[in-house]
Design a protein around this nucleic acid. Sequence first.
DNA 1: CGACCGATCGTCT
DNA 2: GACGATCGGTCGA
Length: 205
Amino acid sequence: MSVSPKKLDHSFYNRKNVVQIAKELLGKILVTQFDSVRSSGRIVETEAYNGVEDRACHAFGGRRTARSEHLYGGAGTVYIYICYGMHHLFNVITNEKDIPHAVLIRALEPMEGIGYMLKRTRKPLADYTLTKGPGNLALAMGMSKMHTGGDLFSEEIFIEDDGLRYKKDQIVITKRIGVESAREDAELPYRFIVKGNPYVSGKKS
DNA sequence: CGACCGATCGTCT
DNA sequence: GACGATCGGTCGA
């Protein structure tokens, strides 16, 4: 059921419901291409961050700082920031400019460029940890803070649709990971995972 | 398996 | 000065 991959365009990202977009991003293919080194993987875990009303979002309450500036960049903007002093986390910005909606891409099933991913992560073997979790994924794909503020319409970082669709019973919805301090918003069902996929972060291996 | 802990540093108060 | 949208290892049951 797959057709020749088509790059997602501005209209895909420029919609109001970031939670819906997070769900639809499951099964899409994230691609990076740096100096003709191509890496790609199928997205199997995402989380939505619902702008100014979401306590877990960096833009909660309309907060706007140097770090979160690109959260406000509008549909198709790349937002990458450093977490815990060492991990680079990759987000896709949705909705119109100045509306800080984001989807955190948390896990991939590697497709192309696995050799380069091993080199970047300095792992000896391609096990399930290669692109499990947002920190590992960004490292494996060669994405870092230097790419924040770019967009997904370039040839360097973009997302493709090859026609794959998961059925409703293949998708599991949970609360988000690592956002306990967001109080009641920590319970929101904003995390989407492909059921049983070994690259999904969290428990079990 | 679950709970905990150290690494590590940019960002915000 | 404190705190992360994490990760991988250890320890105990």
